[in-house]
Design a protein around this nucleic acid. Structure first.
Lengths: 224, 224
DNA sequence: AAAGTATTCAAGCAAGTACTTGAATACCAT
DNA sequence: ATGGTATTCAAGTACTTGCTTGAATACTTT
C-alpha cells in the first residue's frame, strides 16, 4: 500500500515522539517527581542532582511530547503533568519492566526485604480501619506532595520530621506508612525506624498514583 | 538520601531501557506488526521497507528490552512479543498520543473521514448479531494474522482477495470490517470498496488487541 | 531605573544511534 | 561435503542526544 506510506510513518513518528521522551532515565526521574506534585525547575534540579540548564532541557523534551506543561508563576516556572494519562505511561512501563526485566526485581528486592508489605486485598479494608481510627495512615513524603493529593484519612508526616513527632504516635495501633509508590524508599525507611522504636508499623506499597489507578478516592487540600 | 542514589538510578535506567526501545518509529512499526502475529525477520523487513540487517538490529533492541523474543525455526528466525503486556505498552502510548497530540488526530482524520465507525457501545451487541448471522464480521488482515487470533464469528477475507470474493457476500446484511486497530487503514479501504459496490458496510475501529484489552473473548485457530 | 533571581537559549564537544555494506554464521537440501 | 538461504555481526559514516558553559531573557524587588 504505497499510498498509505506517508500516513503510517507520520503516525509512528508521533508515537515514537512519546517513546523518545521516555527514553532517558533522567526524564523518567523528572516525570516521577512531577507525578507527585508540580514543581519548579530549580526544585527538580535539586532533587535530581542535575544542573539547572540540563533539567530545563529535559523538561522541554517532555513538554514537546505534551507529557508536561509549564506556567510562569512570578519568578519561577512551574512544571506539572498535563493529565493523568501521563501517569498511565509511566505505570505501564513500570509494570512491563517489573514482569519482564529480572533486573528490576533484583534491584528492588535488595532494598525492600524484611519489610513486609500489605497484601493488595487489604486496600479497601485499610480505609475503613483508617476511618474508624483502628489504623493510622502516614504519608511520609514531603509536605508539598501530601498537599497535592493524598490518601483519605492519611496524615502528613514527612520522613525528615519523623523523629520529632514520634511521641504523638500510638504504640497500640497499627501504623501504615506509604510514599510515592512501589519503587520509593521513603516508606521503607520510615517503617524501619518505627519498628526499631517498638511501633507496629507496616508499609503500603501503593502511592497516590497507584491508588488512583485502582479507582480509589484521593483527597486534595482545599487551601493551596 | 545519598544512600539510595544508586538504587534509584539503577531503577530509572531499567525503565528508560523500555522507553528507549519505544523511541524509534521503526521499532514501533515492528512492534505493531508483531502484535498481530509472529513473523520472520525477512517478512518484517519486507512489510516495513527496511533492509534486513537494519530490521535485525531494531529487533535486537526490542529483544534486549524483553519486548520481543526470538526462536530459530529451520532456516528462519521467528520473532514474537514476549507477552500481552507488550501490547499494553503500545496501547498506552497510543492512547496518550491520541488525547495529547493534536497531530495524531489530524493525521488519522485525513484518512478515516467519511467512513463512519461503530459506536463503542455496539461491541457486545455486535457479537450477538454476528452469532445469529444478522451481521457479517470480516477480518481483512492477511490470513496469517487472522490465524494468530481473531474476533469470534469473524471470517477471514484479506483485503487483497476482496474483489474475487465479492459474490459470496450478501447485500442485505450489514458487513462489519475490522483490521489491526484504530490506526490501520485496511478496514477503511475495505469499507470504501464495499460501499462503492452497493454493500452495507461499516468499519469497526477495534483490532484484536483492543478487543482483548476490553476483556472480550478472542478465537485462535486450533491447527497451526 | 538598577540589581537580583530563575529560566532559557546557543554553542561546543563527547557519546550514542541509525543506517549501509560486506563478511561471518547457522541451518537446509542435495 | 557443497551450495543456497536467512540471519547476525562488524566496521564505517552521518546524524542525534546529553551535558557543560556562558550569555540572554523574564520577572521581582528596591
Amino acid at each position: 500500500m504505497p499510498r498509505y506510506g506517508r500516513y503510517k510513518t507520520a503516525l509512528y513518528d508521533q508515537f515514537a515522539r512519546v517513546g523518545k521522551a521516555l527514553a532517558s532515565a533522567r526524564r523518567i526521574e523528572l516525570l516521577d517527581l512531577l507525578l507527585q506534585a508540580e514543581r519548579t525547575v530549580e526544585d527538580l534540579a535539586g532533587q535530581t542532582n542535575m544542573s539547572i540548564a540540563n533539567t530545563s532541557q529535559h523538561l522541554q523534551v517532555l513538554k514537546q511530547a505534551r507529557i508536561v506543561e509549564s506556567e510562569r508563576r512570578g519568578n519561577h516556572v512551574v512544571y506539572r503533568v498535563t493529565s493523568d494519562h501521563a501517569g498511565n505511561l509511566l505505570t505501564s512501563i513500570q509494570q512491563f519492566a517489573e514482569v519482564g526485566l529480572a533486573e528490576v526485581d533484583a534491584i528492588t528486592r535488595r532494598f525492600h526485604d524484611g519489610c513486609e508489605e500489605m497484601e493488595p486485598v487489604d486496600r479497601v479494608q485499610l480505609m475503613t480501619r483508617a476511618k474508624t481510627g483502628d489504623a493510622i495512615v502516614l504519608d511520609v513524603r514531603p509536605k508539598a506532595e501530601y498537599e497535592a493529593g493524598h490518601l483519605p484519612y492519611a496524615e502528613s508526616l514527612p520522613l525528615e520530621d519523623l523523629e520529632q513527632r514520634l511521641a504523638s504516635l500510638p504504640k497500640d495501633k497499627q501504623i501504615v506508612a506509604y510514599c510515592r509508590g512501589p519503587y520509593c524508599v521513603l516508606a521503607v525507611e520510615a517503617v524501619e525506624r518505627l519498628r526499631e522504636r517498638g511501633f507496629n508499623a507496616i508499609r503500603l506499597e501503593d502511592g497516590v498514583r497507584e491508588w488512583q489507578e485502582q479507582g480509589l478516592p484521593v483527597e486534595y487540600e482545599e487551601s493551596a
